[in-house]
């Protein structure tokens, strides 16, 4: 009698600590939670303000930069072919640094090591533009995290962070986005937190922003100290989020309320 009871108690504790993950059949992009009007803004390239950054990224792609006087296009050619599907498999493992790297980090690394140009700060118009332009080339493709054993440790760390309660409100990402994604918080849909359309044009920001900016907003919301831009913690979280959203279509640049 003692063993089953202890087992049941352990199950209950586990149930409280870690919310059930969303089954693949119920995964839905944040687009499905938006009003019809906001969906219409995103669907039409003529009214999606994120396209302004895609345009900017497109001209930066062809612009020579740094001491090498080479542009992205000098090596990669037409982004429509060379960058198709790239955003779908990021974050990826970076052999040079021996760590995982996200798309914005990879673009900046390429800038510094190959173009010999200055680093672009995170959330700068230029880096957001380039990331949006590269991400846009994969629009409509399913998120396909690489099957790379070197990423396993970081991915597991990301999952752990996702399920770790933090801040004065003592909430984990999972407390809302796994356990209560059907609910509403202060009138807004909670959603499942799938990174399908980053960088996103957020109406609240009135500008485009990265997934890390979005996560920092949530961390400030639960009154935790946000991780730094480009930190290993954020890349680990991005890795886990990509695995969690595997198969959902990329929408970059998405519009969110």
């Amino acid at each position: 009698m003692r063993f089953p009871l202890a087992f049941a108690a352990a199950q209950l504790c586990a149930g409280i600590a870690v919310a059930q993950e969303i089954p693949p059949s119920e995964r839905r992009s944040g687009t499905n939670f938006m009003s019809a009007e906001t969906q219409a803004i995103q669907a039409d390239d003529g009214s999606n303000p994120g396209m302004l950054w895609v345009l900017q990224g497109g001209s930066l792609w062809d612009e020579p930069a740094g001491a090498s006087r080479r542009s992205c296009a000098s090596c990669h050619g037409e982004a429509a072919t060379s960058m198709r599907g790239v955003a779908a498999r990021y974050p990826a493992f970076d052999a040079a640094s021996g760590a995982s790297i996200d798309l914005a980090g990879k673009i900046d690394q390429c800038r510094m090591t190959r173009q010999h140009a200055t680093s672009l700060p995170r959330e700068s118009e230029e880096l957001l533009g380039l990331t949006a332009y590269v991400g846009h080339q994969s629009r409509g493709m399913p998120i396909a995290p690489p099957d790379d054993a070197r990423l396993d440790a970081a991915r597991a760390e990301g999952k752990r962070l996702f399920q770790t309660r933090m801040g004065q409100l003592d909430l984990s990402c999972s407390s809302c986005h796994d356990a209560n994604w059907r609910g509403r918080l202060g009138g807004s849909a909670v959603t499942q937190a799938h990174p399908t359309g980053y960088p996103i044009y957020r109406l609240e920001w009135q500008t485009i922003g990265s997934l890390q900016r979005r996560m920092r907003g949530c961390m400030v919301g639960v009154r935790a100290e946000p991780f730094a831009y480009g930190s290993a913690e954020f890349v680990a979280l991005e890795l886990y989020l990509a695995e969690r959203a595997a198969g959902l279509a990329i929408e970059t640049p998405a519009v969110r309320p």
Binding site: G46, S47, M51, L52, L55, Q56, S59
Partner: peptide
Amino acid sequence: MSRTLVSV
């Protein structure tokens, strides 16, 4: 750099 989007 031109940052405009017109649809006609």
